[in-house]
Each structure stands twice: as C-alpha cells, then as structure tokens.
Write a protein that binds this DNA or RNA. Structure first.
Length: 162
DNA sequence: GCCAACGTTGGC
DNA sequence: GCCAACGTTGGC
C-alpha cells in the first residue's frame, strides 16, 4: 500500500484587477481558471492535491504581495473556460475528450494583513531562494518549499495550518 | 509606460 | 531541429 504524499505548498498569482483576494474571500471558494501555460498546467493537473496549502499572491499590483492563505479542496480537473466561446480563456484547439487546460478548486483560509509585500520577502534572507523572487520568474502556479512556507507563515503572523 | 525575460509560433 | 519574430508576463 502506498503512503499518501505529504501535503505540499504552492503559490498562485492573480492580478487583483482581474481576481483579487477580496473577491476570493467574498466567494470563499473558487475554481482556479485561466492558466494557459503548460508548466503551470502540469502542476495543476498532476501535482496540486486536496489539502495542499496555497499562498495567494497579487501580481501587477501596488504593492505586489502575498495577501492570503488558501487550501486546495479539489484536485485537477478540466478548466471549463477553455470550452466557453465567450470566455477570454476560450481555446478552440481544446476538446472535451482531450482537454488541454486544467484547474483546481481552492478555499480561502485566512487573509494576511497587512500583506506580506514582495519587498518584505526580499528582506528575509531565508527566502532568497524562492522561485517567486528569481529574476524572470513568471510561472503563475509555483511550488513553495516547506521551509519557505513556514517562514512566510511566521513573517505573516498566521498559524501554519499545513 | 518601459522593458527584460520567457514562451510560443512558424518558416526554412 | 534551428532560430527569428512575435506575444505575454510582471517588476519597476
């Protein structure tokens, strides 16, 4: 019998002008749609599992920051927006039998207030290796190591629930 | 708004 | 399979 995989940790980027933490918190849960990058798709489809922790990050924002914690409540399934002709995420090259794009469902756990700004993250030497902080890093779904996760929870003053 | 870095596309 | 052109991301 196979041991269950340890819970893992992720960082999801979102532009607050498109879908911000306030919106997410009001809905409490959401299906994460619109990821159109194969590397991120592979993570959503194959690696992001129920119970995993998610850092919700505001990109293209002022300030850019980690603004909340979330939890994965359903693993990868096809992103319905790829089939919706009216959606900006519509992909005519995708089909129901061979969907190209995936998403997961997440639930809001706790806000991080005040937000943990990118500047604050950069000041924490222990976080220097975070993928988020690497030059040119733009993957919108990123793995976060357990050590980085723990540091971030401490910096944010939130309980490490994962 | 600028632009560096990255991903994708398509000609060859 | 190479690589130039183009489009996108996202920090600043």
């Amino acid at each position: 019998m196979q041991a269950p995989k340890a819970l893992r940790h992720w960082l999801f980027k979102s532009e607050p002008s498109v879908y911000g933490w306030q919106h997410f918190e009001a809905e409490r849960r959401t299906f994460w749609t619109g990821v159109r990058n194969y590397q991120a798709r592979n993570l959503l489809r194959d690696e992001v599992k129920i119970g995993d922790g998610v850092l919700f990050y505001h990109s293209n924002a002022n300030p850019t920051a980690i603004v909340g914690l979330a939890r994965v409540i359903a693993g990868g399934s096809p992103d319905p927006t790829q089939f919706d002709r009216k959606s900006p995420y519509y992909d005519e090259g995708s089909s129901a039998t061979e969907p190209r794009w995936y998403g997961v469902e997440i639930e809001a756990i706790a806000p991080i207030a005040p937000p943990l700004t990118r500047d604050a993250l950069k000041l924490a030497g222990a976080l220097a290796g975070m993928m988020l902080l690497q030059r040119g890093s733009r993957l919108s779904v990123q793995p976060v190591t357990a050590a980085h996760w723990t540091w971030i929870c401490r910096l944010a003053g939130v309980a490490d629930r994962f």
